[in-house]
Design a protein around this nucleic acid. Structure first.
Length: 950
DNA sequence: ATACATACC
DNA sequence: TACTGGTATGTAT
């Protein structure tokens, strides 16, 4: 302990001398040998590309400085403008001054030459020699002996060696530093549990509360406290020293910590005059956020000290944008953030590597491959998935280029990263050899947090509100509210972001953009190679080639009927009527046989059924939240009741189905913003209730009376083999009747004898939404054993099963037709025990992303594990169809050119028109009935098309 | 939304 | 042999 004190005091005695000398990177080379050092550096580097690049940048800065000076001169000629600016300056200054706060005490601790100190602790024999941590290419930290030679951090090792040939270079050992850092921070947490930290060797504390609790009032006491904290750090880290600054806000504390480095401390009293004095001669570069470039430019207009910012506030106002101006002015006044910011989630992950220059695409691809794997590793470790990918290059001339893209799905795997990165690279082919490649994944979310981004697009009224209840936790943490980031020295770390949200911090940088990569025929850099891969990986491609979304056979089908239409107009309605009648018959058959209404509500229905992690499903919501559900149901009926149920009870189910899909998901989806809020509220209250409910599995209802109980469905889910990406062929699996009856007799609460039909379940595909929740897509078909094969599929429903209760329940309610909700046929199954549910969940989690078949065009899509991809396909598919239908309708109305002036715009209109036509022509015949039935069993897009023609 | 630049450790 | 790597964010288009 006495040793400790001795060390500290001994070093603090030096502070007068050392104070402005070796104060780190920002101070530049203040050594006596400055000129000599500069000479060596220049000799060492002047022929290098790096040096040339620096020169070029310097010229750019000079250019900008020149422009700024011109603007200042011009403005000063214009007296009216000048007066206006003066007035604005005064107003702003008043505003800014009001932000002054002296009621908090901030302390910034900063370990001295941290990495080197860690190394020297293990190698005390080196402590009197010049030592640096780093390599020949880059030095992280140098001790103070080495700094006397001009060795600094962020200096390449070979230059440092020139400056100081006896310099000892020690490679980085981050584990060691991290451990030491933990010890360091552990001490500080006692004084501020909300401590912010921007790196291994730094910590910002607001110790106001601690001072109050411990009755520490005087400035001297505060000073002594910090001294004792530093002693504790010294003890706890086994002899590492730190420096500290005490000030009224975070920014000032940080600046102060630099004043008496190393192993010293500086206190700035919370007093207006003291702060003013302190800022007066402070070099602008000390202000966090003013870096090399800003410093040079400010110096270019002869502003070196903070006080000059205030003296020449008008020039600053002229040269900088509002918020930059505010930043500079408030900093010069010593105003900074004096409260803690909420810790922000990590926003991006990146890996970049420098290497020996490479030129060929093969080499580039190889690097991309390696970097992708590293990045994927990181992403997995962080449990993050990202939606935005950027590739950046640095060529041998140190020019940077980047290419980025917003993805239509969240990714994490190295294969996915690599694939997209290579696509981006295609458009970024370099003209010069490369020395660095980096890949960054951003728009991150926790891989477990998001739910149902996927299908919500198709089944929700409004895209975003769907995710609300589940997204809340994540949106809190990743919200834009907390701009400041503890891990960064960003401006908002030091300054209030309350008024600076749009801060234009570096207005000095814009004009040089053109100069970079603007020479060397960079226009030819882009290489538009055709993608041979049809799979629709990006929305971009989807937009470019919407027809790719449609299965070729489907397109030919449309063409076929189009041509038939021209040949034989009169027969067009056959198909339609035929299928219509069949459906009607079947419906009636079931109604009679089972004495049930609304058993078969559509040939195809989307039902959304969800299981959340507790196994809650939507029926719970219904029984416990009738009012909410009724509200939503009423909305549903308002929307569809007239068209679907009242006027056309016997309507072809295809029409109902497609109408719903197309209306809800294409037209209506676009016009629902105003409803968002109330829906969100409903969802929230509903999901709250769902959360508080007892988990229970219940029978799936709707679509067919002979629904397989959910428990059986879950078992079946377990039996579906994991498909592999290699197996590009669509996989499906059916429960045969025997299996089904077996299960039914085991589990079902529906009497076996009552069955008039047997439902088989066909596994269509597995999707995974962005958050990795699984969406299990199946078609349930009612099988009537007595019927002929062609006719056996009397009814079928598409189901999407999901784990997520909150959203899916909402979706379920919203997207089930009213009849199903009115029926309330859901029968609670035996409640599963918690263990059973756990087992089921485990098994569910075994599923991997896989192929998905578009319900509209039947194209088999490789979803790459993400529903978003499928979504974009379906969206486009629907759009294309709608266009197609509209076109057909136009042709039709032109041909018929009768009474109608209005051309149908929406699918809904098309449907109505068609149905009218159909009713009129209901006497026509069964010519192509076999074909039709087949197609119908496949979802009847073709029959739909035919109807359009009628 | 994308590309480039700046800042920080 | 020759000037990092990770993250955030500002700025312009």
């Amino acid at each position: 302990m006495s040793q400790t004190h001795h060390n500290l005091e001994e070093n603090e005695q030096n502070k007068g001398e050392v104070q402005y000398l070796f104060v780190g990177n920002k101070a530049g080379l203040d050594n006596v040998d400055k000129d000599k050092i500069n000479k060596i550096i220049n000799e060492t580097t002047q022929s290098s590309e790096f040096y040339k690049r620096q020169q070029m940048k310097r010229e750019q800065y000079d250019e900008r400085i020149k422009e700024m000076k011109q603007i200042i001169e011009q403005t000063k000629q214009d007296h009216i403008k000048l007066l206006k600016i003066k007035k604005e300056c005064e107003e702003k200054l008043d505003q800014i001054k009001q932000l002054t706060q002296f009621d908090r005490v901030w302390v910034h601790f900063d370990m001295d030459m941290f990495y080197v100190a860690c190394e020297l602790k293990d190698r005390p024999q080196l402590k009197d020699l010049p030592v640096a941590v780093g390599g020949m290419s880059m030095i992280s930290t140098a001790n103070y002996i080495a700094r006397k030679f001009g060795v600094r951090s962020a200096m390449p090792g070979f230059i440092a060696k020139k400056l100081c040939p006896q310099l000892i270079l020690i490679p980085c050992n981050f584990e060691k530093y991290r451990k030491a850092s933990d010890l360091f921070k552990k001490v500080l947490y006692q004084y501020d549990p909300n401590m912010e930290s921007m790196g291994l060797d730094e910590a910002n504390l607001d110790i106001t509360d601690y001072l109050q609790q411990n009755n520490i009032n005087s400035d001297a006491q505060i000073y002594d406290l910090c001294h004792s904290i530093r002693n504790q750090v010294f003890e706890s880290t086994g002899g590492l020293t730190c420096s500290c600054g005490i000030g009224p806000n975070k920014m000032l504390a940080k600046i102060c910590s630099d004043m008496n480095k190393p192993n010293g401390q500086f206190q700035l009293i919370n007093d207006d005059e003291k702060v003013k004095d302190f800022m007066k001669d402070l070099p602008i570069r000390k202000i966090p956020g003013i870096g090399n470039v800003t410093e040079q430019i400010l110096k270019g207009i002869r502003i070196d000290k903070c006080s000059q910012i205030l003296e020449r506030i008008i020039d600053i106002k002229i040269c900088f944008k509002d918020l930059s101006f505010e930043h500079l002015v408030s900093s010069a006044l010593g105003i900074g953030r004096s409260w803690h910011e909420e810790e922000a989630e990590k926003k991006s992950l990146s890996v970049s590597r420098t290497f020996q220059a490479i030129s060929t695409i093969e080499e580039i691809h190889q690097k991309i491959h390696q970097i992708s794997e590293l990045l994927a590793e990181d992403a997995k470790e962080e449990q993050k998935v990202g939606k935005h990918l950027a590739v950046s290059f640095k060529n041998v001339k140190f020019q940077m280029r980047s290419k980025s893209r917003m993805l239509d799905k969240y990714i994490q795997d190295s294969e996915q990263i690599e694939k997209i990165a290579k696509e981006l690279v295609k458009e970024l082919l370099p003209t010069e050899p490369l020395r660095l490649i980096g890949i960054r994944l951003s728009q991150l979310i926790d891989q477990n947090e998001i739910k149902n981004q996927g299908l919500s697009k198709y089944f929700a009224k409004s895209d975003k509100s769907l995710n609300n209840s589940r997204m809340q936790s994540s949106s809190k943490s990743s919200s834009k509210r907390s701009i400041g980031n503890k891990n960064q020295n960003s401006l908002t770390t030091y300054f209030s972001n309350q008024e600076n949200n749009n801060s234009n911090l570096n207005p000095l940088q814009t004009q040089n953009k053109k100069l970079i990569f603007n020479d060397q025929n960079l226009g030819n850099v882009f290489n538009h190679q055709e993608t041979s891969n049809i799979s629709l990986k990006t929305s971009e491609e989807s937009k470019l080639h919407p027809n790719n979304l449609i299965q070729p056979s489907f397109l030919s089908l449309i063409d076929k009927y189009e041509s038939e239409d021209q040949e034989d107009e009169n027969e067009d309605s056959f198909h339609e009527n035929d299928s219509y009648n069949n459906i009607q018959k079947q419906t009636k058959f079931q109604e009679i046989q089972l004495n049930e209404k609304n058993q078969i509500n559509g040939l195809q229905q989307f039902q959304l059924r969800k299981f959340d992690k507790q196994g809650i499903n939507e029926s719970d919501c219904e029984s416990n939240n009738e009012s909410e559900i009724n509200d939503i149901q009423n909305e549903e009926e308002e929307e569809y009741g007239d068209d679907d149920e009242e006027d056309n009870e016997d309507d072809d189910d295809d029409l109902i189905y497609l109408k719903k899909i197309l209306n809800k998901n294409v037209s209506e989806r676009l016009s629902q913003i105003s409803e968002k809020k109330s829906q969100e509220e409903k969802r929230q209250s509903l999901s709250d209730k769902v959360n508080s409910m007892t988990p229970q599995f219940i029978l799936q209802s709707g679509g067919s009376q002979n629904q397989i109980p959910s428990s059986v469905q879950q078992r079946e889910t377990q039996m579906i083999p994991e498909p592999t990406l290699q197996n590009q062929q669509f996989q499906s699996q059916q429960i045969n009747q025997t299996q089904y009856f077996q299960r039914k007799s085991e589990k079902s609460e529906v009497s076996f004898q009552q069955q008039q039909s047997v439902q088989s379940q066909e596994y269509i595909g597995m999707m995974m939404s962005e958050d990795s929740s699984k969406l299990d897509v199946r078609i349930n078909r009612n099988v009537f054993p007595n019927k002929m094969q062609n006719e056996k599929e009397n009814s079928s429903s598409m189901y999407v099963y999901d784990e997520n209760a909150e959203f899916m329940s909402q979706q379920y309610i919203e997207h089930n037709s009213g009849s199903q909700i009115n029926n309330k046929k859901r029968i609670p199954a035996d409640a599963l025990t918690p263990q059973q549910m756990e087992e089921q969940l485990k098994l569910k989690k075994k599923f991997i992303p896989r192929l998905f078949e578009c319900p509209i065009c039947f194209l088999q899509l490789d979803s790459y594990g993400n529903a978003t991809f499928v979504n974009s396909h379906i969206t486009n598919c629907m759009k294309v169809q709608e266009e197609k239908f509209n076109k057909l309708e136009q042709n039709n109305s032109q041909q018929n050119s009768q009474n109608e002036e209005k051309k149908p715009v929406s699918i809904l209109n098309n449907f109505n028109t068609k149905q009218d036509t159909k009713t009129k022509q209901s006497d026509k015949k069964n010519r192509k009935s076999d074909q039709k039935k087949q197609q119908k069993s496949n979802f009847t897009l073709d029959s739909f098309v035919r109807k359009q023609k009628n």
